[in-house]
């Protein structure tokens, strides 16, 4: 607890962006051991994927559990509509981590398009910098790559893999296990860029009450046209001097962090370079934590109380 964690620039307002992030997510972030499930790769917003990610763009697809990192088999990937899927099979209980890192791509944009993108994707520091240096009329050629992680819980037993560092160019690393938290608890994560904590970086926290995709008879789909499922309000945070962001997760559901680290490039053929990161996870309903041992104790205690009362009244009758 001696670690100094500060939250800078907290929640000035709820912000709404339409972004082109990459997210890993699941129908349910709570899986049974030794069961089959499907990881979903969304390219767009957290609610809606706009296109699939070609497998040759993926540099790394990892799953970490019980301290062991395994690579996904290319055979297990498939695409449907605009979503990329990965079949997975869970093993022992524990907190699992999955990550995907993509190759860089280059995109050229007009000044107006670039400014719009900075505004709508929340890259506000760069937008402000362009304003201050009178570069708003400069077009851009940007190299970008995306690096995403998700944490999911298999069975009841929590494990320490939640804070594994996959070595991606940019990466969120959870500092506490979200599957040990209850609504109202603080969650913190550290943002690393090229292996070092990234200070003073804008980060957005998003929330979705429940997963909007689900499985019917083995096939997964989304409610893409259901506007009620759209939850694009994001809370603006900023990393402290140690690259740490901290936020209170006030309700059960699916939570995610996103950031875009965009800097001017020193390469001749580029004007900018960006690295995008997201981290998704879920928080169980508080009632789920009331189960298990508490119920067991409650029942045993109840039987004991009834037994004692019975003998007291019995003795009184006699």
């Amino acid at each position: 607890m001696k670690r100094i964690i500060s939250l800078l620039g907290v929640i000035a307002a709820l912000m709404v962006f339409s972004s082109h992030d990459l997210y890993l997510k699941l129908d349910s972030f709570f899986l049974d051991p030794n069961s089959n499930s499907i990881l979903q790769l969304y390219n767009g917003t957290f609610d809606r994927s706009e296109n699939v990610i070609d497998r040759d763009r993926m540099i790394d697809v990892s799953i970490v559990r019980k301290g062991e990192r395994i690579q996904a088999d290319e055979q297990d990937w498939f695409e449907k509509d605009s979503i990329t899927y990965l079949n997975i099979k869970t093993e022992a209980e524990g907190t699992y981590v999955a990550g995907v890192s993509t190759k860089p791509r280059v995109l050229s944009m007009s000044a107006e398009d670039f400014n719009d993108y900075l505004e709508h994707d929340g890259v506000l520091d760069m937008l402000e910098s362009r304003r201050e240096s009178n570069k708003l009329n400069d077009s851009a050629t940007e190299q970008y790559s995306k690096h995403v992680k998700t944490l999911f819980q298999v069975g009841e037993q929590r494990s320490l893999d939640y804070n594994v560092q996959l070595g991606y160019p940019i990466e969120f690393v959870a500092l506490n296990n979200p599957y040990e938290l209850e609504p109202g608890d603080q969650f913190s994560a550290q943002l690393f860029f090229q292996g070092k904590p990234l200070a003073d970086q804008l980060v957005y926290l998003g929330y979705q009450p429940q997963a909007v995709t689900h499985t019917h008879d083995g096939s997964t789909h989304t409610h893409a046209d259901d506007s009620a499922h759209e939850h694009s309000e994001l809370i603006q945070l900023r990393t402290d001097e140690n690259g740490i962001v901290m936020a209170e997760l006030d309700q059960p559901g699916v939570w995610y962090l996103r950031t875009i680290h965009l800097v001017e490039s020193t390469q001749d053929d580029l004007t900018h370079e960006s690295n995008w990161a997201t981290l998704s996870f879920a928080m169980a309903d508080v009632h789920s934590h009331d189960g298990g041992n508490t119920t067991y104790i409650y029942l045993l205690g109840s039987l004991l109380i009834i037994g004692v009362l019975y003998f007291i009244y019995r003795k009184k009758d006699a």
Binding site: D27, S28, F30, Q210, A211, H214, T215, H216, A284, D285, H287, S288, D290, G291, G292, T295, Y296, L299
Partner: peptide, 20 residues
């Protein structure tokens, strides 16, 4: 058996009702 006697909203129930 005891562990089943939980009055809660379990994630398993949520999963069942998604598309249930």
């Amino acid at each position: 058996m005891f562990l089943m006697l939980v009055h809660d909203v379990s994630q398993a129930d949520r999963n069942i009702l998604q598309g249930g």
